[in-house]
Design a protein around this nucleic acid. Structure first.
Lengths: 143, 143
DNA sequence: GTAGTTGCAAAGGATTTGCATTAAG
DNA sequence: CTTAATGCAAATCCTTTGCAACTAC
């Protein structure tokens, strides 16, 4: 599990031009320690229960700043909530229809970076989401 | 542009086990004529302005039924709204960061159907979303 | 009749926003 | 000091739900 020192986290924020306040460091630290694609609500709940100096609005604002500066990525799954990810190198996600958990999966070596876009279109990234059933749910549901 | 006769649409609904009411036929017809990935709100606005016999709840309910029966697919983009698509064969989508419009793009012939999932996991489908800038926005924004 | 569908308005849930307070350099 | 960030609550937007009225067999 990634476990960067506070100094490292502060440095990352500063390099991105984000003022490293207590709350922002907490949140980025949380994301680096929890690679299971938490939602803003989950981040808030977990951090707020440990340490009451944190509001929901701050979590949403901070996550949006981190997104904007490219320190995290967002994954839209069709759940009502957005899931965040600090893993920035290209990879795909798998989500279980039943338990809604998300896994990272390796992207096969494919030309997903060069889909046949119309002339003049510019790609900035590709999101690949595989849906299905995880092994536990597949077993218990007899899918 | 697809332009199925009402009879065809009714038949499709019946084959899926959906009672072909006036509103449901209207909505499926709309989706077949508008391949630009409309949202429920857009469907409601366009159909309601033509013909006032339609409520927002009916649009949401109907779209969910169509989804459930596999007559349409949903595309989650990270906008606050879901976009619907009657094109059911495998393809990718491109969305412009700037104008938010969505295009269908061909999936390169890749093994996206067989990503390396963990043992026992079952895939039921893959959603590929390419993000970037469309030609018009790229030009006007000098990206 | 009876079951299923519609419309309306209200509820629900995720996210954003306004503004007074507080913290950071 | 001065600017920016925080916390709180209210607001907003999308979507779902409850329920009474309606429609179609």
């Amino acid at each position: 599990m990634t476990n960067l020192a506070k100094d490292e986290i502060i440095k990352r924020l500063q390099q991105a031009g984000i003022k490293p306040t207590t709350q922002r460091v907490m949140i980025l630290d949380y994301l680096l320690r929890n690679l299971d694609h938490p939602s803003s609500e989950k981040i808030f709940q977990d951090l707020h229960s440990q340490d009451s100096v944190l509001s929901k609005a701050t979590v949403y604002n901070t996550v949006n700043i981190l997104l904007d500066k490219g320190l995290v990525a967002v994954l839209e799954t069709g759940d009502e909530v957005a899931h965040y990810d600090v893993e920035l190198h290209e990879h795909a996600h798998f989500q279980c229809h039943s338990c809604r958990k998300i896994w990272n999966v390796a992207l096969p070596d494919m030309e997903v970076n060069n889909p046949s876009l119309p002339e003049g279109f510019i790609s900035t990234g590709v999101q690949v989401l595989v849906k299905g059933y995880c092994v536990d749910c597949a077993n218990s549901l007899q899918v």
